[in-house]
Write a protein that binds this DNA or RNA. Sequence first.
DNA 1: TCTGGGGTCCTAGGACCC
DNA 2: TCTGGGGTCCTAGGACCC
Length: 434
Amino acid sequence: MRATASVLHLDLDAFFAAVEQRDKPSLRGRPVIVGGIGQRGVVSTASYEARRFGVHSAMPTHEARRRCPNAAFLTGRFDAYRKASLIVMGLLRELSPLVEALSLDEAFVDLAAGPERSLAPDDLVGLAGELRARVAAETGGLTASVGLGTSKFIAKVASELAKPDGVRLVRPGEEVATISGLPARAIPGVGPATMERLSRLGVEKVRDLQRLSSAELVRELGRSAGETLFQLAQGIDERAVEPDRDTKSISVEDTFEHDIADPGVLAGILERQAGQVAERLSRAGLFARTVTIKLRWPDFSSVTRSRTLLGATDRPEAVTAIARDLLGGLETSPGVRLLGVGVSGLVGVAQEALFDLAGEAPVVEERAAVPDRRPAGWLPGTDVVHDELGPGWVWGSGHGVVTVRFETAETGPGPVRSFAVADPALHRPSGDDH
DNA sequence: TCTGGGGTCCTAGGACCC
DNA sequence: TCTGGGGTCCTAGGACCC
């Protein structure tokens, strides 16, 4: 535990709505609701004027309309939000190189990693005040709430207590007293399902949690969640502020205004989504090994189906082919409410592949049978193959698919294809060091 | 006419490997 | 003619967060 309240958490107040009010003076002082405006939309952000009517994030838009019919309902302008966010994050980086953005409107700063300065309580409060003034000046009047504490958890609780438009410092030693009276739901990781379980144990407030042992919480919630919750309830949080975390997945999904059952229409949507995902992959200079589709039926139940390949790709044709193949295995006749495509297993190196999942598996030959011209990205220890496209190298394989690059010194560059195979172990790198 | 979209992390079972 | 054990990868689902 830190001896100083050197973790800062900044949260922009009602961010999306505040940007709209900043850019459109007629909206100032009025309830503004940003989110999906269709039949199936939900509220992303409600201005404080709208919150007075009981409107809040994640509420269905039709319910928000019922509660607050005079509000301005707007879809997001994410370019504007990103621009404001970049300015704020830049200001935070002047305080310390250790800035961890949680979203466009929220970030932690580790002030102990910044330039030499006093971390005494009065000085920290002064610094937070200056920061808020600079945020307002440089963003055209956006307000931020700032919390200061000895850990991420405490700093975040502090900024929540500071809202809106305020500063709150939790001094070292005051952590437990600050959180004890809060609802257990205020602890990060405690959502509706966990709260339901805790209620059955008689837990309402954080102080009720403090009476439970680590073993009891582990029994109820599992090892990871139980131990983490036990620690947080005691005000103990050793998590570091981590800047520049790598992207782990990219996805696009759409909820339809009306359920769709037509397979051709769904396939077309999937192709468009796969293209968007591939576009974002290549813009980021990344390649993906796993493609996942997500489908939600009219009864709101949902499923995912995924496939992983040894080769990684950023090609829209490849993502589309796999996504369509996966969709083929799912029931769509009752109608589909939501459809989406995602990729994960992201790597920075191209092992790209075009996919021809209808193809027959090629024949594996002796390694010496093909003149050696191993393409970049070829995996050491893999086999040579042959089929009507000519000789080639096994470039990747696994879980029912083998990827082949048809290229040798004699044949020159050829296509890259993936084949569905009955035997996932068609290719196996050699060696048993047991 | 309930219930978005973009993510992260965890769990659990099965396959596979040494 | 019970029973290996440990590790990793993959898939699917679920909880949670903003």
